[in-house]
Design a protein around this nucleic acid. Structure first.
Lengths: 269, 269
DNA sequence: CGTGATCTTGAAGGGGGTCAACTGGAGTGG
DNA sequence: CCACTCCAGTTGACCCCCTTCAAGATCACG
């Protein structure tokens, strides 16, 4: 039975991935692009530095499951995600794969290996994806020659730092449903920022990855999805999610573990 | 009774804080320094850029409990920790204070606010501390004029990124004692990197802060300390910690909650 | 020495981890 | 087309660990 069945449009993907450029959609591989493309991707509209449109930049495409860089692997470049979704993972010595976070359009990957000798984390494409590659040995030179590149690099680094702190909210000491609610809200906000629908979307990652990211067992994720659907804030069919009651979901995400006795959530500092 | 009593030297701090420079030890305030000092702090020994020793830099001292910058506050500078320890926190809407991580000597603070309009997290000194302040409006100029500054900035940012991923290991789905073991090992390694003793040290933070950082109740932290002491890997007296059996502690930190179900992590694309 | 914060310890109860079984879709090959 | 396998997801049952509440012990500080 399915308390959480979708209306009818099961077979139709809700948010169809916008068609990548021709050379990428066909197959995984590498292509050439320019710094100007990257700057535009990162929201630089005015003040394109002179020469940015002829400064070549490697563009790499990846198929689902393909790894952008391995954990422990040598660092050779940093990557700006142009399209698609990645998961960043760290594997414990016992084989448990910890999902650190998910990266999509505009996110910076691989910078954390700058000082180190190897990548402290790995990155795996969850769907068809493409990235701009910036070799480390060009990093400073590019930043020096193109001020706007320096700016987007710093900005992306700052975004990456802030994004990592979100993990704390996910895995904080709260009930599992609350973690899931926060996770879904974060996804929703990210999609909204990309111009996609914040209320209906398809999760790119499996339950296992979500579970790892939230710090719970994957069965608990299933149950929490069920619970949220039962409360009427969500509709769920496998990876398709529709947020019915956004306010309710927000309310849920706000709450802490403590059940409380009286009802007012207000607490003096 | 105390299964976890210290030998005798209770009143003697194990790792006495190295005396700060005179102008700082006296009281909290601000002083003047140079870029060369910062570069030396960050390990740049050769190739000091010309003029770095006359490039002025604001040095700020903080007393325990004093906040370096508030969560939500406007961003005006980034900070390199010169001495002392900070906790980075984010306060939930319900008043719960999530401890993101702890920063000490050589760590970079405040960079995550670069793109944003306000600080996504706050930083509070846990003891007498001092930081080099680099105003944001000088950031690019300094990086442009002094290549080694650009390098340490990137490197510190990378370190900050990697450090944040450690949080995942702490709050991952494992037993509380394992989290504490991992936390203590990380502290130990950090101290070792600073030239301090990795086996005996004083924790700068309270049980509550540790609990928040590990994602458990503070009572559980107490019990876990007791458990570790009972297993004979630790000796604990309040915030003084001595690691008796480093190998045993490592072994503990390694273990996961999940027993495993055969683990070839390989997956064909 | 008192006052409050921090830390420890105990008891109780539930949330979620673990194990196990079932479902359903995708891929494979007969 | 169906049998078979494999994997992702769901659901159920059990029960232990950790949260919560409460009280006591210890420490920090005026």
């Amino acid at each position: 039975m399915s308390t959480l069945a979708f209306p009818a449009s099961r077979s139709v993907p809700i948010a169809p991935p916008r068609p990548s450029s021709a050379l990428l959609a066909t197959e995984a591989g590498a292509g050439r692009s320019t710094l100007a493309d990257l700057l535009r991707l990162m929201g630089v509209i005015d003040s394109l530095d002179d020469g940015a449109d002829v400064q070549p930049l490697l563009l790499r495409a990846l198929r689902p499951g393909e790894v952008l860089f391995h954990e422990g692997g040598a660092m050779d470049a940093v990557y700006f995600v142009r399209g698609g979704t990645f998961k960043r993972v760290r594997t414990c010595e016992d084989g448990y794969e910890q999902v650190l976070d998910f990266a999509d359009r505009g996110d910076l990957l691989g910078l954390d290996a700058l000082g180190q000798e190897s990548h402290p984390s790995g990155a795996v494409a969850l769907e068809l994806a493409s990235v701009y590659c910036v070799p480390v040995h060009e990093l400073h030179a590019l930043g020096h020659r193109y001020p706007s590149f320096d700016r987007i690099l710093h900005q992306a680094a700052a975004r990456a730092l802030a994004a990592r702190d979100e993990l704390a909210s996910m895995m904080a000491a709260v009930a599992a449903e609350v973690r899931l609610a926060r996770f879904l809200l974060l996804r929703s906000q990210r999609l909204a920022a990309s111009g996609q629908s914040p209320r209906r979307f398809r999760l790119r990652m499996g339950r296992r990855d979500i579970a790892s990211h939230l710090g719970v067992a994957h069965e608990t994720v299933s149950r929490s999805f069920g619970a949220l659907a039962g409360m009427g804030v969500l509709r769920v069919d496998n990876r398709e999610v529709e947020i019915i009651d956004m306010a309710g979901l927000r309310e849920l995400a706000r709450s802490t573990r403590r059940p409380q006795h009286d009802g007012d959530g207000l607490r003096a500092a």
